[in-house]
Design a protein around this nucleic acid. Structure first.
Lengths: 191, 191
DNA sequence: AGTAACAGACCGAACGGTCGGTCTTATAGA
DNA sequence: TCTATAAGACCGACCGTTCGGTCTGTTACT
């Protein structure tokens, strides 16, 4: 195993544990056990628990941005892209990915994490804003401030996530779908 | 001080600390110090830390429901009520209330907390659904499943909160306002 | 006197992090 | 080619601290 491989191996182990037990119950000894790497080994690659948390957040946010990028790169109408993003989000939620909720909560207190999170939201917002602009240009959406509308769209998706992650036995897919419908109904130009 | 007063005093102290330092750094010794009640005293009123966390969540959720109830009791149009709720939410966010984010994250792993949270969302959803129904009946909103629409509205508000709590220097009020506008544009019957 | 309400010293487990050492692989001089 | 040397990657026992929680009182009111 190369250095980078081991590093990622440790991060994946940590992510798995985070998904299973939440941050409050995430401790180094468990990460050591789960990863199969010794304590010394883990601390060779990461100088602190905080650094692991940081790496986990980076990984998740990068994944998220990639999902959005892929959805945006498809040659589709703006609303179709929007639906695609929502569906990706849904698919990912169904996997055993750890909820970013713990990490968001942490970021509220940690300037470093907060920095990454802000950068992420900036990127996210910028990309969605481009999409909104596309929709407006193509006459699909009613004109408005793309940046602000983008933030509202993100709010809706994140909120749906929050609810979906919290409430079990909820038809998450249907909810996201209808949320987007509601949103589009508001965005679509009235013909 | 009566028993109930001391109890609430301790909870307030815990809430203040939660707001300041987040759940990860919330410990009993600090609660003891902040409340001014001794450890024995605190453990006289609460048999465990979990019980305090539970009480905190209960308090926050009850507050939230009350806000909604007050907003709903005003004799207003459906959309006006909706704006009122958003504005209340915003006002509360500006105070130093602790973000429920930590508690939401916790609830994901704790069945008891989850139970309270689900009950809360159920109530919340039911109330908003009534409001949506009112809007539909009065011809203000386009017809649709009030329950599902209610969930979407909640998603939007919670999402706006999430973003607002996370990103600093964001014009939170403006964002919520525009989010509701966007929503209403979708909800309003096209004349 | 009895009990509800509190005080605070104390406990053991668990935590994040350290440290001296080992194993493997790469390099280089003879 | 063989071997000496060194560096990188990893090991796991151990340490100091912190944590949630307990226990033995003490106060004050009825």
């Amino acid at each position: 195993m190369t250095e980078a491989e081991t590093r990622q191996h440790i991060i994946f182990a940590a992510l798995k544990l985070l998904a299973e037990k939440g941050f409050t119950n995430l401790n180094m000894n468990d990460i050591v056990r789960e990863s199969g790497v010794s304590k010394g080994g883990v601390y060779w690659h990461f100088k602190s628990k905080d650094e692991i948390v940081q790496a986990m957040l980076d990984f998740i946010l990068t994944e998220q941005i990639n999902i959005v990028n892929v959805a945006l790169s498809e040659p589709d109408s703006a609303s179709a892209k929007l639906r695609r993003i929502a569906r990706f989000a849904e698919a990912e939620a169904l996997e055993q990915m750890p909820s970013p909720l713990d990490l968001y909560a942490l970021a509220t207190r940690d300037p470093v994490l907060m920095g990454r999170l802000i950068a992420y939201f900036d990127q996210y917002q910028a990309r969605i804003a481009v999409l909104v602009q596309q929709g407006i240009d193509e006459g699909e959406f009613t004109p408005g401030d793309p940046s602000l509308i983008a933030l509202n769209i993100i709010s809706l998706i994140e909120g749906a996530f929050l609810i979906g992650l919290t409430i079990p036995n909820l038809d998450f897919a249907a909810q996201v779908e209808s949320a987007i419908d509601l949103l589009l109904q508001g965005l679509n130009r009235r013909t």
